[in-house]
Write a protein that binds this DNA or RNA. Structure first.
Length: 315
DNA sequence: CGTGGCCCCTGATTGC
DNA sequence: TGCAATCAGGGGCCAC
């Protein structure tokens, strides 16, 4: 459930508390949390030991931590191929994390009691760590186990050390390299509706159910509008609102309805109070006063103003 | 192939 | 009180 702003809050915490440290021990306590690492939990733990964590990266809702310091690449090890003697400087390994609906990455004191849904624990060497980080470890906690960690080769030559398995994920709208014109062209080619398109991580990443509804409300667009009829100005306005709402949410630490959505120190964000549509069923629209409605939509809900956001004519 | 429906999982809340 | 149904910020997979 964490979307781009919440994941970015976590990324910043990892950058501050984990980057630069050297992994010592890895404990996998639930197999589902590691299922995307096909070589298994023992391989995951053994390969990470002794590696140093690089800068924390993010694309959309995916997070990764490049790791370096020795050993063959994941690919060559998995296939039994001898490591290349002169590997490319920008070809390496990265821990990939996805939080799913309920995942958390927490930096906790080693002696803190285990969380009920603690799935993976990563401990670090004390040597060389900043005094303020000493004695802490990284924990992946996940009630519903839709999220998980895995270890992957990075795309050769990619300056961000993007894990190869997420190379198909689109850039997110806060990425300076996001291509607005290409996004508009892709929308026009699709035979789908606008909210489905916003949630399609191969078209635009980082947008989930909350920020899709918020951006559509700001744009006065109904979630069922077909994308094939979008004009350039309409796409531009929508992208502007997507960027605005996510930037505003990020500035206050993201959206937290409960203690499930927290930064690495367990603290909640404050954007819930600024939501205009999501979760506001029967409350007055802040533009026109009409009660906000909730509609079942793709096993979830869509919140919208029935007056500001008129449905398209049925075709 | 693109698109839409279903399923994975645990827990909180609501209504009978 | 108990129990069933519904819902939750995600995405992979599989039919059509």
């Amino acid at each position: 459930m964490p979307e781009l702003p919440e994941v970015e809050v976590v990324r910043r915490g990892l950058e501050r508390w984990v980057t630069g440290r050297t992994i010592d021990t890895v404990e996998v306590r639930h197999p589902r949390a590691i299922r995307r690492h096909t070589a298994g939990a023992d391989d995951f733990a053994a390969r990470l030991k002794g590696l140093r964590v690089g800068p924390a990266r993010r694309r959309g809702k995916y997070l990764w931590l490049p790791v370096a310091g020795g050993g063959p690449s994941a690919q060559s090890a998995a296939e039994g191929i001898a490591p290349v003697l002169t590997p490319s400087v920008t070809h390496g390994l990265a821990i990939l994390a996805h939080l799913g609906m309920s995942g958390q990455l927490l930096v906790q004191p080693q002696d803190a009691p285990d969380e009920k849904h603690l799935r993976i624990r990563i401990g670090f060497l004390a040597a060389g760590t900043p005094a303020e980080a000493a004695g802490t470890e990284l924990r992946f906690v996940d009630q519903r186990t839709f999220g998980g960690l895995s270890l992957h080769d990075t795309v050769p030559g990619d300056p961000d050390l993007l894990p190869d398995v997420i190379a198909h994920i689109a850039r997110d709208p806060l990425d300076p390299a996001f291509d607005d014109a290409a996004f508009h062209d892709a929308l026009r080619r699709r035979r789908t509706t606008i909210k489905r398109a916003l949630l399609d991580q191969t078209l635009i990443s980082g947008v989930g159910n909350i920020y899709a509804d918020e951006a559509l409300w700001r744009s006065r667009l109904h979630y069922d509008r077909p994308t094939a009829t979008f004009t350039r100005p309409r796409t531009a306005e929508l992208l502007g609102h997507v960027r605005d709402v996510m930037t505003e949410a990020l500035a206050v630490g993201g959206t937290s309805f409960d203690s499930l959505y927290v930064n690495v120190n367990g603290e909640s964000g404050y954007f819930e109070r600024s939501l205009d549509a999501y979760g506001r069923e029967d409350e007055p629209c802040r533009r026109c006063g009409t009660p906000i409605r909730r509609r079942p939509w793709m096993n979830r809900s869509s919140y919208f103003c029935p007056r500001c956001q008129r449905p398209p004519r049925p075709s």
